[in-house]
C-alpha cells in the first residue's frame, strides 16, 4: 500500500521553472530517495506534500489524506526537515525544542534528550549564533521529536560534518528498520545509495526515472584512474579498452557492468596504483541519462 502519493502534480512558476505532471508513490515502510540537481523542483514538491502550497493541477496525499485539505491532521505522524532551516532566533536550542514540543502538544521530552545526546548537540547557545551544522542538528532533533511514522527530509545532511552525516544515516537506517516510510531529497547519490530502496530522479520539474537503487548502481558507470608502470603499457591498454584515454603512464577509464573484464585485463599488466575518484551527482546523472540513450 502506498503511504505517500503524488499524482500528476503541477505548478508552473514560468520560465520553465516549477514541477510538471509529477507522479510517484512511496510504499509503506519504503525509503525513497528524491534526487535532482538544484532547482529541479524537489523542494517545491515537498512543499506540496507538507500542505504549504496548493496544487495548481493534480494532487498529493499522505495516508490517503489530501495534503492541502488535511494538512494539520497529517502532521501528527509526519516528521519534516526543511531544506532551509530557520527558527525563532531569539531562543536557545533547548528553549526552541521545548517550545516546539509543547506547541505540538507532546507530553514527554525523553526523546529530545536522547536525540540531543546522539548528535552531540549543545543546546545552550542562542539559535541566532549557531553555525549551519548546529542549526541542522536542531532541525533533525525537531523532526524526530514525536517519533513519526512518515518522514519527509529535504537535504537533511547539508551542513553536517562527515561524522554527523554518518550518525544521521545510522538513525535513518534504524528508522527504516522500524518500518517508517521515508522520502529523502538529496543531491548526494552516496547518501541515498546507503539509505534508500528506490530512487526517484527529477530534472527541470519533470520525472526522469524511478528505479531501484540496485539497478541505478548497475547502470552507473564507474570511473577509474590507473597508473601503469610505463607509458607503453598505458597506450597498449587504451587500444584494448573502449572507453579510456591515457596521459603519460596514467589511464582514465569508464567501467560499467564489466568490472570483472577490467580486472582480468589489468592483471596482464604491471600496475602501480588504482584509484576511483568520487563522482558527483551530476556526473552520475549524465552517465545514467547517457546509459539510457544507449539502450
Amino acid at each position: 500500500m502506498s503511504v505517500l502519493t503524488v499524482n500528476q502534480l503541477s505548478r508552473d512558476y514560468g520560465n520553465e521553472r516549477g514541477i510538471f505532471d509529477l507522479t510517484f508513490q512511496v510504499k509503506e515502510g519504503e525509503a525513497l530517495g528524491f534526487l535532482g540537481p538544484n532547482g529541479a523542483g524537489k523542494t517545491t514538491t515537498i512543499r506540496h506534500l507538507m500542505g504549504f502550497l496548493r496544487p495548481e493541477k493534480g494532487s498529493c496525499s499522505i495516508n490517503g489524506l489530501d495534503c492541502w485539505k488535511h494538512r494539520a491532521t497529517i502532521q501528527k505522524d509526519l516528521g519534516y526537515i526543511p531544506g532551509e532551516i530557520s527558527f525563532f532566533d531569539d531562543m536557545t536550542g533547548k528553549e526552541f525544542l521545548n517550545f516546539y514540543s509543547s506547541f505540538r502538544n507532546l507530553k514527554t521530552t525523553s526523546r529530545i534528550n536522547e536525540l540531543i545526546d546522539r548528535f552531540d548537540l549543545n543546546t545552550r547557545g542562542k539559535l541566532k549564533k549557531m553555525s549551519k551544522g548546529m542549526k541542522q542538528k536542531v532541525g533533525i532533533v525537531a523532526a524526530f521529536i514525536h517519533d513519526p511514522q512518515v518522514l519527509i527530509l529535504d537535504e537533511p545532511t547539508s551542513g553536517l560534518d562527515p561524522l554527523m552525516q554518518n550518525r544521521f544515516i545510522e538513525l535513518i537506517l534504524e528508522e527504516k528498520q522500524k518500518g517508517k516510510t521515508i522520502l529523502m531529497s538529496s543531491h548526494m547519490f552516496e547518501e541515498v545509495e546507503r539509505t534508500c530502496h528506490r530512487v526517484c530522479i527529477i530534472k527541470e520539474g519533470k520525472l526522469v526515472a524511478v528505479d531501484s537503487v540496485d539497478s541505478l548502481k548497475a547502470s552507473q558507470a564507474k570511473k577509474f584512474v590507473i597508473t601503469f608502470e610505463n607509458e607503453e603499457m598505458a597506450a597498449d591498454f587504451t587500444t584494448k579498452w573502449e572507453e579510456s584515454t591515457y596521459r603519460s603512464n596514467q589511464v582514465t577509464l569508464i567501467a560499467r557492468q564489466n568490472i570483472n573484464d577490467m580486472i582480468a585485463l589489468l592483471s596482464t599488466y604491471s600496475i602501480s596504483n588504482i584509484t576511483s575518484p568520487e563522482q558527483g551527482l551530476e556526473e552520475i546523472f549524465l552517465q545514467y541519462y547517457g546509459g539510457s540513450e544507449h539502450a
Binding site: 526543511p82 532551509e84 532551516i85 532566533d89 505540538r104
Partner: peptide
C-alpha cells in the same frame, strides 16, 4: 524568514 515552517509542520490548524 522561514520560521513559519515550524508553526505549520505541527498538527495545529
Amino acid at each position: 524568514k522561514g520560521s513559519m515552517v515550524y508553526l505549520l509542520s505541527a498538527p495545529v490548524k
